[in-house]
């Protein structure tokens, strides 16, 4: 009999195995019991292959609460520098904030998220950037379920002839609609926090009675 676990993960580092092991636990049945990690990344650009993550910010949200002590805020040492994107995120190459290597950041991030449901605004981009970083280390893709606040926000709007259902709402537009302060916009942690508040408000609209099953939310 062959051991197919061993075959699956031949010689992945210990931190990856620990991360993978967390998925043996089942996710909670209800949205109100689920831990969500709301995240945002700042990057040198939009090219999944050549651009790099500059910083990762994330907060944990569970049953309408967010612990400030449980936030994730790390800057990455840069191998690549794109002067164009400095205008947006304000992170300079020589910035003296404490920074981690990509590998350290990935390790910490995997430990932080565990098997939580990930939430991001236009999540595809952030997840792909992280997956690219994983790939560079020879690791598989993230295993967590992912929710996109841009998509969920559209689900809160009523159907009407006047609403463009395909419209992509920017984080700024959603923050405006929900009247959320946009201080610290364009820092990873600031955007993650704004996204988290927006996410809570969206859940408030689509799960009014606190009875929604997690499966239903993931299928929306």
């Amino acid at each position: 009999m062959f051991n197919f676990f061993r075959k699956e993960s031949p010689d992945y580092p210990e931190f990856w195995n620990a991360y993978e092991a967390k998925f043996q636990e089942e996710l909670p049945a209800f949205v109100s019991q689920t831990t969500f990690v709301v995240l945002d990344t700042e990057t040198t650009g939009f090219d999944y292959k050549n651009d790099r993550i500059l910083s990762i910010g994330a907060v944990k949200v569970r049953s309408n609460e967010l612990d400030v002590s449980q936030t994730f805020e790390h800057y990455l040492q840069q191998e690549r520098f794109n002067p164009e994107s400095v205008k947006i995120h304000g992170i300079l190459k020589e910035e003296k904030t404490e920074s981690l290597t990509e590998e350290e950041a990935i390790r910490k991030f995997l430990k932080y998220i565990g098997n939580a449901v990930l939430v991001a605004h236009h999540a595809v981009f952030d997840i792909k950037m992280i997956n690219s970083a994983l790939k560079r280390r020879g690791l598989p893709k993230l295993k967590n379920p992912v929710l996109d606040t841009g998509y969920l926000y559209r689900k809160t709007l009523l159907n009407s002839n006047l609403i463009d259902r395909e419209k992509n709402y920017s984080l700024d537009e959603i923050a405006e609609a929900f009247i959320i302060d946009v201080k610290d916009r364009h820092t990873a942690i600031g955007d993650a926090f704004i996204t988290a508040i927006a996410f809570l408000k969206i859940l408030g609209k689509i799960d009014k009675k606190k009875e929604m099953k997690l499966k239903e939310l993931l299928k929306l």
Binding site: G57, V68, T71, E98, T187, F193
Partner: peptide
């Protein structure tokens, strides 16, 4: 380590 959210809340 710096916690931006904490600073904002303060």
């Amino acid at each position: 380590m710096k916690n931006t959210i904490a600073a904002r809340i303060a």
